[in-house]
Every structure is written in C-alpha cells, then in structure tokens.
Design a binder for these strands. Structure first.
Length: 462
RNA sequence: GGCCCCGUCGUCUAGCGGUAAGGAUCCAUGGUUUUCAUCCAUGUUACAGGAGUUCGAUUCUCCUCGGGGUCACCA
C-alpha cells in the first residue's frame, strides 16, 4: 500500500509550490490505489490552523483533489508525542538539557568567533549531577557523533551526510514540553503509515535529523522524494512577494483547474514530449522517479497557453458551468451555443471570456474614431442600408449562416468585396474594428437588435 | 562561511557514449479569416568552462565557475 501525505504548515492558503507537491503525492497515491493524507504542521502556532486547513480543502475542492481520512493536526497530538519522548528518555536515547538560552547563545558566539560550526556541545548528554536551579530543561535526542547518514532519495539518488558535519543533539521538546518539528514529523509519518514522502527539497537537509528519530524509535524509514524548488524570475525560492502564489488567485483570474494542474504537473516532471494531460493521464503516467533534479523557474506563459487550450476544447455545457463563478449565467440562454462558440477561441481566461460576452450583448456606447474615419465612408452607409433592408425583410433569422447568406447577397448584388460590408457593419454592431465573427454576433443579439444597432450607427454618422 | 543539491534554446523540457541535440511555449515571418483571435506553415535561439576516461562525449570522472537550499527551544 502506497501512502503519501501533504503536510503544510498553516500559512493561511495553499500556494503554488505546495500544490505541486500535493499534486505529485496525490497522483502517486491514486495511481497505486493507495492513500493521500493531509496533516497540518502546527506544533508552533496553533491559532489559525483550522482556517488554514479549510483554505487548503477549499482549494483542493476547486481543483478536484481529495485527501483521504481525517485531517491530522499536530497541535492536537501532544499526548502521543509525549509517550515517545518518555520512551526515549527511559531508554537513554534522549536527555534533559539544562543549558539556558543565554548560555546557548554564548556558546554559539564563541563558536562563530572561532569560525567553527555552531552546534550544541553535548554538555548535558551524560549529565547525572544535580541540575542547576531555575532553568527550564529542554529535551535533546542523542544523535550519532560520527558516521554516515545515508538518505536514499528517489529523485536525487543516494545522498550521504557526515554526522559530525551536520548533526548535534537537537531539541525534540522545548522548555514548555512542546515537541519540535523534526521529531513529530517522523512520528506522524510513521503513525499515519506514510510510505512515500514527497516534499520540497528544502527539506533535504532536515531528513538526516528525521532519520535519527526514526532510528531511535525503531521505525522504518519511508521512501523519500525531494522535489526541486520552484524559483521566481530572480532564481530564488518562490515566496508571497512574488505575487499570485495563492492557488485560489488563479481561480479569480479565470484559470481552469485542469489548466493549472496540467501546468504544474509539467513543472519539474515530464513524460516524453507530452504536454497535455487529462487527470486520468496524469494518474496513469505520473511516476516520481521522473521528477527533475533541478529547480524550475516559475513562468506563466505556458499556463496561459494551456488555459486557452482547455477553454477551446471544453464542451459548451461544461464551459458554461465553469463560467458561472465569473458572473455569467447562461444555462437558459437560447443562444448559448452560438455565444460560447464565438468566444471560446478568443479568450485566454474564463474571466476574460465573461467580459467578452458583454462586448457582444451590450450595444456600443461609442464608436472607435479611427475606425470610423477609415471604414465609415459615405458608400458604407449605402451598403449598410441595403443590408438592413434585407434583414428586416427576412422573417427566419436564427443561425449565423442565415445572416451570412444575407451578407453574401449584398456583396454579390452590389459587386463589392466582403470587406466593404464587414468593416462598417462591425463598427455598427460592436463599435470597434476587432471581435468575433459578425454572423455569429447577429445571431446572438437577434434581428431587432441588429437592425437597431445598424440604424444607430447610420444616424450617428450621416 | 560549513554541509547538501543543481547546471541542455529566454522559459518548461526530451536525451540516458555515436543524434543535423528533439518537442512545447514565447518571439518573428508568411498563409487562412470581412477584422482581431484561432488555426496552419516556416524561422531565430541551448549542451556554463576546463581537464581527463574513451576510437568517440551533452551523456562517465575530477576541478573551476555559476545558481539554489539549509544550518533555531520556526515549520
């Protein structure tokens, strides 16, 4: 059984980087028929962890990801951790340290002055005298003093650390008794049955510490996959100040869940030359062993492309459902199909698409001046009048092709090019010189509105 | 600074000793379109550098350089 987990600290929202590792973990669990668990790492700041969890679940819902089982809150598991602290104490694998914070920082300063690595000196490691008065004790684990700690990483390969380089007897319980991160992570992953830890490679240097805990407790070490960071344009770790790191901001901007997921799955992972992945394909093809070793730079050009790709290729009924959060309610609109067909190929985002609807549905309040000059010459009025006459004489006008026929007739009868009618008509209908196909526009707004807009344009310019 | 990781087009990436170094995006140009967008076609751009190993290195080794991560009673 493959069990993966997503274990964010409660920052208040789900960010892009977190989502990607969550996605990788999710895909790998689902592919293997395993479990994808969610744990909130709030040993330090418990106050807004509930909200944070809700924000994450909300984002998951939007994206169609789902975690298994109850959400685990580390802040609620002190009793569990206490058992293991006690156990290690009794087994002599951990000990109370009475070094005050002042003494500790003094130690660090002298180490720094001597250009030595700053680390705890093990003063109380084998202490059995009388403890000093008025000092709160912390609990430290006995870490190996020498030897190699090997991290077998599924992405980076085997990484060897020397205990004397990186370890000291690190704190597993603070003065107030609360346990620390590296300690509880190992315990929770074990207790939750996590078999594969997929996380950012900023955790790589924590891993040896966690292995120390696993070994002290006699737990099996899970399989690790350390995913490279996502960098910003400056090549630094992506952070809040890079903007739009909240996943839900992408919903507001009008990105589809599918596009965002597809974009993220291909950031740092690939499957040959394939760019487009449905959710099923992601699940089928994803394998953490194909994750890249190097960091990637966050650049949304491809996200834009994917988004418009998905908008173009989404069936209209689903598209109209996706459009609802952007204030576009057209489930009962009789010209829904024509409208969506006219717009889906020109919008990069759902938000933009909702806006584009207004450009069609609402009559132009003004006309682009340059365009008027260019294409609204005297002869244009004649053409428009001819067309207008045909429209009003025609009783069966529904489809874009119906209008197209009439335009064709005018062009044929007057012996002019299509541009001679298209340009002024476009201006009359939309007020500007770009936009969707005119036959579609007329079919959407209908006969009466078409006539009225043409009429308005003629009066405004004759 | 110590330790660790990384280094192919601007960006995302394929490559797993022998390739004209491939795809995608972006950009540019042309075509289609009444316009814009879409779509199609074409094009520019990359193996950080230096030593080895080898008949042969983008691929293996080492060094240099560059970038990043991490060094808490934060997570």
């Amino acid at each position: 059984m493959v069990v993966t987990r997503f274990a964010p600290s409660p920052t208040g929202y789900l960010h892009i980087g977190g989502l990607r590792t969550a996605l990788f973990s999710y895909l790998w669990a689902r592919k293997n028929g395993g479990k994808f668990l969610l744990r909130i790492e709030d040993t330090d700041k418990a106050r807004n962890s509930q909200e944070a969890a809700e924000a994450i679940v909300k984002a998951f819902n939007w994206l169609g990801l789902e975690h298994d089982g109850e959400i685990i809150y580390q802040s609620q598991r002190d009793d569990i951790y206490a058992v293991y602290i006690k156990q290690l104490l009794e087994e002599g694998k951990a000990y109370k340290c009475y070094m005050s914070k002042e003494e500790l920082s003094e130690l660090r300063e002298t180490q720094m002055a001597n250009k030595e690595r700053t680390k705890y000196d093990g003063k109380y490691r084998d202490f059995n005298g009388t403890p000093p008065e008025n000092v709160e004790s912390v609990i430290r684990i006995k870490a190996p003093l020498s030897g190699e700690i090997l991290v077998r990483d599924g992405v980076k390969g085997d990484i060897s650390f020397q205990a004397e380089d990186i370890l000291d007897d690190f704190v597993i319980a603070r003065g107030d008794g609360s346990p620390t991160y590296n300690f509880v992570v190992a315990i929770d992953d074990h207790l939750m049955g996590v078999t594969q830890v997929i996380r950012g490679d900023d955790h790589l240097s924590n891993t040896p510490k966690q292995i120390v805990v696993y070994e002290a407790l006699g737990f099996d070490v899970p399989k690790f996959y350390h995913v490279p960071m996502i960098h910003n344009h400056e090549g630094k770790k992506l952070s809040k100040r890079d903007g739009a790191t909240d996943v839900m901001a992408y919903k507001e901007m009008g990105y589809t869940p599918q596009a965002l997921l597809n974009f993220l799955v291909r950031l740092g992972w690939s499957y040959g030359d394939q760019e487009i992945f449905s959710m099923d394909e992601m699940m089928e093809f994803f394998n953490p062993k194909n994750i890249n070793k190097s960091a990637s730079i966050y650049n949304t050009e491809k996200l834009d492309w994917l988004n418009s790709h998905y908008i173009k290729n989404t069936p209209n009924n689903e598209l109209s459902r996706l459009l609802e959060p952007y204030g576009l309610l057209l489930t009962s609109h009789d010209k829904k199909e024509i409208l969506l067909d006219a717009l889906k190929e020109r919008a990069k985002t759902l938000k933009e698409m909702a806006l584009l609807v207004n450009e069609i549905v609402i009559a132009p309040a003004s006309y682009d001046e340059k365009a008027v000059e260019k294409s609204f010459k005297a002869d244009a009025i004649g053409v428009l009048k001819a067309f207008s006459t045909k429209v009003s004489a025609c009783s069966e006008l529904h489809l874009p092709s119906d209008y197209h026929h009439l335009m064709q007739e005018v062009v044929d009868e007057m012996g002019i090019g299509f541009g001679k009618i298209g340009q002024p008509l476009r201006l009359a209908l939309l007020g500007k010189m770009s936009g969707p196909g005119l036959d579609g526009v007329m079919a959407i707004i209908g006969k009466d509105e078409t006539l009225s807009r043409i009429d308005n344009a003629i009066t405004a310019h004759s």
